[in-house]
Computed example of a mutant assay.
Amino acid sequence: MKKLLFLAVGVAVGVLAARKLEETEKGKRFFDGVDSRTREFTDAVKDGYRSRDRELRGE
Rank of each mutant, 00 (worst) to 15 (best):
R57E: 11
G58D: 03
D32F: 09
L4D: 06
R19T: 01
T42P: 00
R54V: 06
G27H: 05
F30K: 04
A12M: 13
V15K: 08
R39H: 11
E59V: 15
K46I: 03
D47F: 00
A12S: 10
D35Y: 12
T24H: 02
R52P: 02
G58V: 03
F31G: 04
F31W: 05
D43S: 11
T38H: 01
E22L: 13
E55A: 15
E55Y: 08
K2L: 06
R57P: 01
A8G: 09
L4R: 04
G33T: 04
E22K: 08
K46R: 09
A12H: 02
L4H: 09
D35F: 13
K3S: 01
F31D: 03
D47M: 05
V9A: 05
M1C: 11
S51W: 12
R57D: 07
D43R: 08
D53Q: 10
G27I: 05
E22Y: 08
L56Y: 01
V11S: 08
T38M: 10
V34C: 00
L21R: 07
L56I: 15
F30Q: 04
G14T: 11
V9H: 03
R19Y: 11
D35S: 11
R29Y: 02
D35C: 00
T42L: 12
G48S: 02
R37L: 10
T42V: 15
D43P: 03
R37S: 00
V13P: 03
M1P: 14
V45S: 04
V15N: 04
E59Y: 14
L5S: 05
V45G: 04
V45I: 14
K28E: 14
R57Y: 02
F31M: 10
F41S: 10
R29S: 15
R29H: 06
V45K: 03
R29A: 15
G27C: 07
Y49N: 06
S51I: 07
L5E: 12
R50E: 14
V34A: 14
F41V: 08
E23G: 06
F41K: 07
K26Q: 15
Y49A: 13
